[in-house]
Design a binder for these strands. Structure first.
Lengths: 248, 248
DNA sequence: CAAGTTCCCGCATAATCACGCAAATATTTT
DNA sequence: AAAATATTTGCGTGATTATGCGGGAACTTG
């Protein structure tokens, strides 16, 4: 096999998977690791990839990683961390949008092998960076304000899914109305998300507690788990625990 | 055996296998390696192949080795600008992915009132920034390498659409196979895009001209308009014009 | 911090290449 | 047709390139 061929193969792999491992390549290409490393180095010098310990990454991959880290409130990280523990290999997870959710996707362990269903464009993009996640985007008309797909199509297709988990970014939650939101079209989708999942998890910063908007997504009883940045024993969470929610 | 014969044979082998080894050729042609090397050098000077250490590669091979462009080239801006003129108020436009297309979306005039259909996540995100564009994302399983939705669902839903324009980011186009691409799933979607639109526009940097990949998206005749960064009168575009494509 | 990878460096080997020259072949001129 | 000229080819030689291997440094991970 010619050197250029090898290098073309490497680039191809990079374009598909966003990364390559030297150890994989030297088996696939049937050459020594040194040769692979030399190839990677050359390609790196030509600016076609980014060499890292153990292999190489697509250049674009690195950029998106660097350009993240902008919207990271420490509270959101805590919440995201708690929620990630709920996701196990093989699960089908429906997730909504929001910056907390983006943080969560960002922090997903790379070896996690789960399938994610979403209607939110930035979330989908973030999920695509994950090496092992399978991503399903339920599309239709996109709502600009929420950067997500909405409408009957989406609701209908959600109805055809049986998910293990529904992770809901939550704008407002209180004891009377449960989860509420602003726009009719968003509510319809969130309702469908909750309906199709076995367990519903609400992710909310503590400041969103005890606030409400006009339209109800679901009553408090429809939520199984509530995650905030607070300790589960915090005073403010007590009323929610009494209503039967698990607090994390 | 005559020199011309030998060289014709070499070209033939290149066309079949996309590569030749000097060592193979000197056995097959029963000449010394020097002769083979001299032939390859000549053919390389004529631009008919690409000489590398140990043999030669098809010219088209050169393109598969190019990695994703991260920054937008000025050529892409020229192309985007030409394409934008084709989009009028009230149109339904199907658009594929790629950096050129992203450039295009970015440059859309803010007062344009059109509807866009896409299956590409970054494009959708970009379109959402536009104040007046209506965006429809056809979703399903997402393909990581292309950051786009693929599969039967998408193809089927494209079939239900009647679009005015299909803007195709083009990886490879040549006179023989028309538009070609790398992955099967991408081709299926692009085919459906072309089928549902009244006019198909191919956007391609001139370096993509006369290159081909393994899988055919559509024959040249299915393309109505070809846009490159070159002047429409450029020599390199003449053969395409003769085949009935409008050149912009 | 300790084990296991991965990396880097220099060297040995083998393949490939470039160059000059002379023999063979083709082309042109006389 | 013979001679002169030009082109092509093969081979020898030495330079260049590609690759694998060993050993020690550097990094990763638990």
């Amino acid at each position: 096999m010619l050197k250029k061929e090898r290098q073309a193969y490497i680039i191809q792999q990079i374009n598909i998977h966003n990364k390559v491992l030297s150890s994989d390549l030297c088996v696939q290409l049937d050459v020594s690791e040194d040769t692979v490393r030399r190839d990677l180095q050359e390609l790196a010098e030509e600016g076609k990839l980014m060499k890292v310990h153990g292999g190489a990454l697509a250049k674009s991959f690195h950029f998106t990683i660097e350009s993240k880290q902008v919207y990271s409130l420490p509270e959101k990280k805590i919440i995201a961390h708690k929620a990630i523990d709920l996701i196990k290999d093989g699960m089908l997870v429906v997730i909504s949008g929001g910056t907390t959710m983006r943080e969560l996707v960002n922090m997903l362990p790379p070896d996690l092998n789960a399938t994610f269903v979403t209607t939110n464009v930035p979330i989908a993009l973030e999920l695509l960076e994950h090496p092992n996640a399978e991503v399903i985007f339920l599309g239709n008309k996109l709502l600009k304000s929420a950067q997500m797909a909405v409408g009957a199509e989406v609701v209908q297709r959600l109805g055809q899914i049986k998910a293990d988990l529904c992770l809901l970014g939550t704008n407002s939650i209180d004891l009377h109305l449960g989860i509420t939101d602003l726009e009719w079209e968003i509510i319809e989708v969130k309702k469908a998300m909750i309906a199709c999942a076995q367990k519903t998890v609400s992710l909310a910063i503590s400041e969103k507690l005890n606030s409400s908007q006009r339209l109800q997504v679901c009553p408090l009883e429809a939520v199984n788990i509530l995650i905030t940045e607070l300790a589960p024993t915090d005073q403010r969470l007590l009323p929610y625990a009494k209503r039967g929610l698990s607090i994390l």
